[in-house]
Write a protein that binds this DNA or RNA. Structure first.
Lengths: 94, 94
DNA sequence: ATATCATATAGATTATTGTCTATATAATAT
DNA sequence: ATATTATATAGACAATAATCTATATGATAT
């Protein structure tokens, strides 16, 4: 399995992180730009980003002083698909 | 939206609850039978079941002294689908 | 070299969640 | 009515996770 569904579901069980994912759905963003959408402090955002990164939900790239994060969309769909597959309903007609 | 993805992802972010879901995938089970698969005490299992029930991941029915739980498979697939849909990758060819 | 800005890390504190013991409820049996 | 069994609930305690402040790192600019 390419992605760890365990860390995936822990990562997406938090509202702040879901909101970050929504922000990154449209475009990549640097940390300070992400911060402007929240009341919490920058280190907290960095912490959430590191959890998302560990779960491979986001990737990062450095550009000068900034670090840009972007959403790894295929991780989201893969994990959801794998998980749903484990609990597939066999009663429905295919 | 029929199911609350918020409570869904909180519910599935715990290993014990995933294991309960796997047990219930095959067949419905009463609480004491579920308990035999874990080292933790019955009230803890009941607590996990109540979280799964609140998220509509399981349903329960009473039969005499026992309460039987079963997996609501369509909740799992719906929530996964809804969530994946929010972060759908538009770059891939359809 | 020093200053500044963006981000990450460390460690403390707080909030949330999981597990336990004790007990309540509800069904059945004697 | 009392006892027994299955499960749920309440409340205490423990473990985990989120947030904060302070500081370190690393890039750029002066």
């Amino acid at each position: 399995m390419q992605f760890d569904c365990g860390s995936f579901f822990k990562a997406v069980s938090d509202g702040t992180r879901i909101k970050i994912m929504k922000l990154l759905y449209g475009k990549e963003m640097c940390v300070s730009e992400i911060c402007t959408h929240f009341k919490m402090k920058q280190p907290s955002i960095s912490h959430h980003l590191s959890i998302l990164k560990q779960a491979k939900i986001v990737t990062d790239r450095k550009d000068g002083k900034e670090v840009y994060y972007s959403l790894n969309k295929c991780c989201v769909s893969s994990c959801c698909q794998d998980f749903a597959g484990m609990f597939k309903n066999g009663d429905k007609k295919e």
